[in-house]
Design a protein around this nucleic acid. Structure first.
Lengths: 142, 142
DNA sequence: GGGATATATTTAACACGTTAAATAGAAAAA
DNA sequence: TTTTTCTATTTAACGTGTTAAATATATCCC
């Protein structure tokens, strides 16, 4: 068995940790967790959506999202409405306040990400990302 | 700003989730969490070590490791001793029972991982992992 | 239509992630 | 040596990860 840090899972976790470590304090200052940030970003990019799709897009489990939406709605960063098509579910969207938070914070996180691309090479990084996506698509069980 | 799922962080998280999803139930059946498994694997591969090095190698924060070691020690899977070189810290090692659990479970997880290599291509996967490691090494701040 | 089944969401329970602060011992400096 | 400073670990607090079970509504089958 390979040493953990050289394993596939270990390598992925280490990469993710290296990427996020400098970004977490930025989100912290903005008053959102990494997961809340994911939710806001997905909603901002996709528009109003139901919780199940949102969970899938933000890579969150249902129970986590349930808590997160409650919190973000209480803080006025997202708006939750009944789903007219399905009495069980609801539809969530970003508020103006939410969008403002996103805009202000994205500037800083993007600068950090640009730094990564600069250090590693823009094309090389794009290739790495697309290989990762190909890998994920290949092994995912449907 | 890129859609979250195409971003660097999103791609890494999605890949990790795809890799771990089938493995988690195996660990679950073995009675260990993903993080406990990481600790056991690192200890098994490296031998007795202090908590700080262990945390770094298993990609865990100190407080998490503190809880995990207490639990694993209570269950007899690891052994904790005072560090003769440093009165503040301690040294941890895997027990025979811990090693047995590792052996039994590794067989299943490795079969799963072999499946990934088969689907994606062994050489292609090795290249992807080494690119990831290069990336992590490049952006890590020291 | 009415009951069986499936799906969306929430609740519960327990472990970890994450930051900050507390504790205690080691190391360095005065 | 003693005061200061650093370092290893733990505790605390709160949010999330993860699985299982509960709840409520939709959908399907008869």
């Amino acid at each position: 068995m390979l040493p953990y840090r050289q394993s596939l899972a270990g390598t992925l976790l280490a990469a993710r940790e290296a990427v996020m470590a400098p970004i977490r304090p930025m989100l912290n200052e903005a008053g959102v967790t990494e997961q809340q940030w994911r939710v806001l970003r997905v909603l901002d990019g996709t528009g109003p959506m139901d919780l199940k799709s949102l969970a899938a897009s933000a890579l969150l489990f249902g129970p986590s999202l349930s808590r997160i939406i409650k919190d973000l709605a209480d803080r006025g960063l997202v708006l939750r409405k009944d789903n007219p098509k399905d009495g069980r579910g609801s539809i969530v969207s970003v508020t103006v306040a939410g969008r403002a938070l996103i805009q202000g914070t994205a500037r800083r996180t993007m600068r950090q990400l640009d730094g990564y691309a600069l250090k590693f090479g823009d094309e090389r990084l794009k290739k790495l990302i697309s290989e990762l996506q190909a890998f994920t698509g290949t092994i995912r069980e449907d």
